[in-house]
Simulated assay, not measured.
Amino acid sequence: MVDEAGARRRLDPAHWDFFAGGAGDERTLGANVEAFGRRRIVPRVLRGTGERDLRTGLLGCELTMPVLIAPTAFHRLAHPDGEVATARAAAAAGTVLVVSMAATQPVGEIATTGALLWFQLYPQPDREFTTTVVRRAEAAGCRALVVTVDSPVFGRRERDLRNGFLDLPSGLACENMRDADGRIRDIVMDEGLSWDSIAWLRSRTHLPIVLKGVLHPADARLAVEHGVDALIVSNHGGRQLDGAIASLDALPAVVEAVGGRLPVLLDGGVRRGTDVLVALALGATAVLVGRPVIWGLTTGGADGVRSVLEGLRTELDRALALAGAARPTELGADLVAVPRG
């Protein structure tokens, strides 16, 4: 479905390593995919499901399927049309693109595609500048803020260090990091990020706040108490803390802790429509997909991204039928098993 090998052939080796790699020994990177490989679907039969309905509502957005595009940086390294191409594909597929704070095109330009956009944010120690970025996302019509909370410091990505990949090539920049004078600022991780930071952000925006990077059920309960609007169970695609639990393995405990009080999404390791089904059965409202979208963008621009999304849609639709369900909300944990041995 995804031409990963073709993307690797097209990309500069250092850029391939940036997109494909993870932190440290990349144990968590591999664990995300392996966690899906350990699960088996236990389908129901004779359910008379008829035509399936994949539509999903999230934070006031109506999606045609429970698959969103995860925030990933530097799309213009993959294709000259960059995030605009990705957004065109999201609009055509009827789903959400979460625009990265480290996008190589400004969120206002990305918004001209008409795509449903959420905006991913690293709260900066400079709160005034953070407010400027938030206002920019609001002005572009973004429908939610996705706050990455698993990154008080950068993970150690050894492939990037070996390649000396520390800056974007000439002509590219993190366009959403421009200050009021038009100068590009560096993204600074906030080592003091806390629940007080989330409360401060709530006081500065009317947008729903989604926390990305929650793995521990205690943090999920705290998120509910602090009035967060949704969670993304995520280990940053294995790019931050190597050795962290796989997102899928963390999902059930987070879902239980939340107790249906807010939506729980998942990213990390989703490669097939059957992976989407497993995540939904274990309690996710939807999933986000990152690297496969980059591979599609690299090989085919907007058409390549749309091909990835439509492939996931088709596979999920077929998997629902074969599992005996007409819609994602009919899936339950009883449909997923982990064989012994």
Rank of each mutant, 00 (worst) to 15 (best):
P292R: 09
R156G: 07
A250V: 02
F74S: 08
G341H: 13
V228T: 05
E315A: 04
D126H: 08
D196A: 15
D126N: 10
A23N: 09
G290K: 02
A257L: 06
G243Q: 05
C61E: 14
A279Q: 07
T72M: 14
R178M: 12
R135I: 08
R340D: 11
M101C: 13
R159Y: 10
L121Q: 08
D229A: 13
P123H: 03
S100E: 01
A70E: 03
A35N: 04
G24F: 10
V2W: 00
A257W: 01
L46R: 10
P292A: 07
M65H: 12
D249Q: 01
L262A: 11
R88G: 13
R55L: 09
V264H: 02
H15N: 07
W118R: 03
G304Q: 06
Q240R: 11
L322C: 04
R40G: 01
D160G: 04
R127N: 05
S100K: 03
R178G: 12
L262G: 08
A302L: 11
E315P: 00
T49E: 07
A246C: 00
A35W: 03
L168I: 05
V338P: 03
V254F: 04
A111T: 11
I245T: 13
E34Y: 00
E51N: 11
H15D: 14
R183Y: 12
D53M: 00
L117V: 12
T130I: 10
A102I: 11
R183Q: 14
V338N: 05
L168S: 10
V153F: 11
D303H: 15
R76Q: 12
L116C: 15
G182V: 02
P71N: 06
V45G: 00
R272A: 02
A223I: 02
R306A: 12
S234D: 06
G300H: 07
D317F: 02
M189H: 15
G332F: 02
E315W: 01
A20Y: 13
A173D: 09
R39N: 03
R327V: 01
A115W: 07
F129T: 04
D25L: 14
